[in-house]
Computed example of a mutant assay.
Amino acid sequence: MGVFDVVGPVMIGPSSSHTAGAARIGLMAREILDDEPVEAQLTVYGSFAKTYKGHGTDKALVAGLLGFSADDVRLRTSFDIAAQQGLKIVLSRSDDEVDHPNTVRIAMTGKTGRKMEILGVSLGGGKIEIREINKAVVALSGEEHTLITIHRDQPGIIAQATTIMAIGHINVSNMRVFRSAKNATAVMIVCTDSPVPVDMVNMIKNISAIESVITLLPL
Rank of each mutant, 00 (worst) to 15 (best):
Q160P: 01
G26H: 07
R114L: 01
N171F: 03
L33W: 09
E39P: 00
L42A: 00
A83K: 15
N183Y: 12
I158S: 08
A184R: 10
I164A: 11
A107H: 12
E36N: 13
K205M: 01
M203T: 04
R74Q: 11
M28W: 05
A70F: 00
E117L: 13
T109Y: 02
N174H: 15
K53R: 11
A29Y: 11
V62I: 11
M11L: 14
V213L: 05
F178H: 14
V201M: 08
T215S: 10
V172I: 15
Y45A: 01
I130Q: 14
A40M: 03
Q84V: 06
T185Q: 12
K135A: 09
H55A: 10
E39Y: 12
E144C: 02
P197N: 13
L119C: 05
A166W: 02
H169R: 15
Y45I: 03
P101W: 01
G46P: 05
G124L: 08
I157D: 01
V198I: 01
M165G: 01
V104D: 15
V7N: 05
G56Y: 01
V10Y: 07
T43E: 11
P14E: 03
D5H: 12
L140M: 14
A40L: 06
A161N: 00
P14K: 04
G21Y: 10
A159F: 01
G86L: 12
R76V: 13
D5L: 05
I204W: 07
G125N: 09
K182H: 11
S180R: 14
G120L: 00
A22G: 06
L216E: 04
S122C: 03
T57F: 02
A166L: 11
I106Q: 13
Q85H: 12
V137M: 13
T57A: 01
V62D: 02
G142Q: 05
L140W: 06
P155R: 04
V104G: 14
F178Y: 15
M1K: 05
I204S: 03
G126P: 08
I189M: 05
K115A: 12
M203K: 15
S194A: 15
F4K: 08
Y45F: 13
E31K: 15
E129K: 15
G125S: 08
Y45L: 01
A107T: 14
